[in-house]
Amino acid sequence: MDIDWAALGQVFGVSLVMTVGLVGVFTLGIVGTRTSSKAGDSGPALLGRVGAYASFALCAAAVVYGIYIIAA
């Protein structure tokens, strides 16, 4: 019996961290655009919008990395 427990554990850990991380970051991005569009162009709203775009950029990078993994 040759079960690669280490690989299974890795898959579990990576899946958990990446899923929760990406979903969390994306959700922050959505909430960020939401609050900034409501509040207009004042200081904190601008900050929220920049943060939101940064979140989406991070998610886009993750998608690109995903494509890279599939193609590699």
Partner: peptide, 25 residues
């Protein structure tokens, strides 16, 4: 929608992690 996004992201990440780390699921 929020659940669909969480589920779909989990699927994508798990599939890629499993094929990349060598434990086929």
């Amino acid at each position: 929608p929020a659940q669909g996004f969480a589920a779909q992201t989990s699927s994508a990440v798990t599939i890629l992690a499993s094929s990349h780390l060598g434990f086929a699921l």
